[in-house]
Design a protein around this nucleic acid. Structure first.
Length: 279
DNA sequence: AAGTGGACCTGCTAGC
DNA sequence: TGCTAGCAGGTCCACT
């Protein structure tokens, strides 16, 4: 099984290696095939640098590095659709789908990503260069107190896209990918096809609460393991066992037994219960 | 400004 | 058994 990299999987991955890698010294860095963007830094120049506290913003991880003197920077990592990170002490040669590897005094951090939609890019700081550009349009963090129903309601004003697509866009709140957007809308009883700008204040409050709770629950369960998602320890998640609608087309709704429907929105599959979720 | 569709790349499964 | 079409966690970019 591979973790499906939405926010919970990225956070579970972060938690699985952040403490172990903090303070480690970089021994060497190796790259495989090109990822989504070029790294934009001489990897050989990073030997001897020290790893700081790994943080997350949306579905990105930031691995800060401290060099000699005033030198500082870091790696912004995204898992794309099929990426996973492993951190362990015993590692063999790079496999066919291993495209980034950082050997450190505490273990080896390795990105495996068959589809190579993922990325590892250099930044002199999180708020400079490429990282700053990539993070610029992101919405609020789901666990930030600023993420309220009022915030969501205000940001949805005038938007004609469906609420499902508005959630996925990530410019209002980050972290809900295809699975969790579907699940949050089911929990909130909202039809995913409803125009975003038409959600009432109470429904926005409900949706904000459900986005937060579904993501929190998924993190607590270790994320979702569809094909082969694992955290950096190699552990699998269990959230997929509790999905109400995602991937359940034709199967009975766990609440009302009506067959779950699948529709296409913005070239992505959406799953919903035609009875429990209302316009 | 907001919305739409194409692009990136590989692997797996269902169906013929 | 073998080939092909369709599908998959994300999100940037060009264009209307």
């Amino acid at each position: 099984m591979t973790l499906m990299p939405e926010l919970p999987e990225v956070e579970v991955t972060r938690q699985s290696f952040a403490e172990r890698i903090e303070g480690a010294q970089v021994l060497s860095v190796h790259v495989g095939k090109p990822l989504r963007w070029p790294l934009q830094h001489d990897v050989d120049a990073l030997s001897g640098w020290r790893v700081g506290v790994v943080t997350r913003r949306g579905k990105y991880l930031w691995v800060p590095l401290h060099g000699p003197g005033e030198l500082a920077g870091g790696l912004l990592i995204h898992l794309g659709m099929s990426g996973s990170l492993a951190f362990s002490d015993r590692m063999g040669a790079l496999g066919q789908h291993d495209h980034f590897e950082m050997l450190t005094s505490r273990g080896t951090l390795r990105l495996t990503d068959p589809r190579r939609f993922g990325a590892v890019v250099w930044g002199d700081a999180l708020d400079a260069g490429v990282p700053a550009r990539l993070l610029a349009g992101l919405g609020v963090e789901p666990f930030d107190p600023a993420f309220t129903g009022e915030h969501m309601h205000q940001r949805l004003q005038g938007r004609r896209v469906s609420i499902k697509q508005a959630l996925l866009a990530g410019d209002i709140v980050v972290g809900a990918g295809n699975i969790y957007a579907c699940e949050a809308l089911f929990r909130a009883g909202i039809d995913p096809r409803l125009a975003a700008g038409r959600l009432s204040r109470p429904r926005c409050a409900r949706l904000a609460a459900e986005v937060r709770s579904v993501l929190a629950q998924a993190i607590a369960l270790g994320g979702s393991s569809l094909k082969d998602f694992k955290d950096a320890h190699g552990s699998q998640g269990h959230f997929q066992l509790s999905t109400q609608v995602y991937g359940r087309e034709g199967q009975p709704c766990r609440t009302c037994a009506t067959p779950i429907k699948r529709v296409t929105q913005g070239q992505r599959s959406t799953f919903y219960c035609p009875v429990c979720q209302k316009k």
